[in-house]
Amino acid sequence: MSKHSNPQTGMLESILLQLPLRIFLGGVFVFAAYNKIPAIQSFAEAIKGFQLLDAETHPELIVVGAFVIPWFELLAGLMLIIGLRARSAAMGIGLLLALFIYALLHVIFTDVSADCSCFGDENFICGSTVGWCQVIRNIVFLIPAGYLMIRGPGRVSLDQALGRPEQITYNPQNASQSVDA
């Protein structure tokens, strides 16, 4: 029998684990977006500084990234906090973290001196210059993102209130039945 077949256990997990993790991870990304959105020029410069893309030949990709990434962070972060399409938001945040880790490793291994600008002009846990600290921090953030993607947002969420299929906790035995219902 699945642990979530017991409603009390599911509620306990939701309140003690899923809700705090959603607020933490979503809050981190909302904070990141809040610092980037008013300073798009600086963020574009930061992307250029990573030297993942050639600014001479593909400046438009850097500009598009500078405008889209902060808004994606804001939307995904807010949706994770309120628990609306939370699994999708967690997946998006996980993919974004993977992209950030790749970019950070690129900077580290190519010996480029670049600023993270992960939180705009602010710092969170690590300093401003790209280093292993940011890589480890992002790997740690991947853990709650992966957990929320697998387990869902829990019972204290809009997905639950709206009865969305995303909310249903993974259980191979009754997953298809629950989704169809």
Binding site: F72, L75, A76, M79, R85, R87, S88, A89, M91, G92, L95, M149, R164, P165, E166, V179
Partner: peptide, 9 residues
């Protein structure tokens, strides 16, 4: 469902 939600974001 998850992928469509992600594409929506």
């Amino acid at each position: 469902h998850i992928t469509s939600g992600l594409l929506s974001i």
